[in-house]
Design a protein around this nucleic acid. Structure first.
Lengths: 199, 199
DNA sequence: TTAAATTTCGACTAGTCAGTCGAATAATAA
DNA sequence: TTATTATTCGACTGACTAGTCGAAATTTAA
């Protein structure tokens, strides 16, 4: 491994450090309330150094979304490409997401909530949206397929999708009590709520 | 009615006008992105006039929450005090909320989302929280009661509460497509998802 | 060792915005 | 009418913050 590669790697590590400092500031001060000075000192750099790694505040922002969503999808590949029933796959993905979210709460809260919170800002780079759309399209596809096979209640798939999406976000991010929600909890809850139609 | 009363009434009307201007700015610029200058011109006043009616930006904010949550609860009194089964009452409240939210989308979006979006701001006046807690306590009580009577799936009530809360918010406020969700949709969906346990 | 390249940052600038001030106008009361 | 009170607002201030600059420190390459 040449020296230049090591340098790139260290650069990448410093960027990650800045991301994680930024996330903790976002958590305590809110997204708009976070200043570059705070993010800088939270990540152990001077402000000007931040601008050596990112051209603007928005790029820090988009960097987190880009990296985060990409990692998120990567971590789901296995579940997505399993050959189980649509219903099982659907639920497995939600369970895996729960695990991830519990492990990196700040990051996942940001990934799922920030995009809504910043619709009013003009974003140059929205490549992270591709990942997000791919996740949503996957889940929506499984839902459609599952409904067609009678594995889910026979309801408007769009409504179901919104409902389950909201349910999931509510479950994971609602309330401050960080009461652990186990994968079992999620599975039991989904299996009880999302029942197949009575024959 | 004395002249002084009419004046008070007009003052109140002007405050409402400011609230509604503020809501439309919040909608387009986001909560932190909204400036007092914009709120002023959106409501047809000069900025200094806003400060004649409210001592600070935060008070405009709290004014909307206070008025909004108070009206919201008032509009639910009938459903809350009905003597139907817990399950029916619970669902009726959600249906009524859906109707309200569809009628005043901006306002309800603010009432349900703003409190989360501003946890990082120190709020002097939080009297609106009393109303919010009363609604949540009512729903939680109905859920507990209903579970005890076997009208709902037999799951951890706290989890159920979060799940249904998220479900509701997702259903109403997720996505920009303002596809009308009818009360029937909600009822059908809830009745399909929240099934009583199989005997 | 020394020159070049990389990384760091304190101090500064330019712009924005909440909130104030004082004066003007309109409504009410005497 | 005139005095008093209520309402309006343009212009200003002080605080804060994104982003820049230039110089210093550190690392790498020869």
């Amino acid at each position: 491994m040449s020296i230049s590669d090591r340098q790139k790697e260290e650069r990448e590590l410093r960027k990650e450090r800045i991301f994680s400092g930024a996330l903790s500031v976002f958590k305590s001060k809110g997204i708009d309330g976070a200043t570059m000075d705070e993010i800088a000192s939270a990540s152990g750099f001077g402000k000007a150094t931040l601008y050596y790694y990112f051209p603007s505040k928005e790029d820090v922002f988009c960097g987190i979304l880009e990296k985060g969503w990409s990692k998120l999808l990567e971590s789901l590949e296995e579940e997505i490409h399993s050959d189980q029933t649509p219903r099982k796959t659907f639920i497995n993905i939600l369970i895996k997401l729960t695990r991830n979210a519990q492990k990196n709460r700040n990051e996942y809260e940001f990934l799922f909530n920030a995009p809504k919170a910043i619709t009013h800002i003009e974003m140059k780079d929205q490549s992270w949206k591709l990942y997000q759309h791919r996740l949503y399209a996957t889940l929506k596809g499984l839902l459609d397929e599952g409904i067609a096979k009678g594995e889910f209640p026979n309801l408007d798939p769009d409504l179901m999708f919104k409902a389950i999406g909201g349910l999931f976000v509510g479950l994971i991010f609602m309330g401050e009590d960080n009461k652990d929600i186990t994968a079992d909890d999620i599975e039991k809850l989904l299996n009880n709520l999302i029942t197949a139609p009575k024959k």
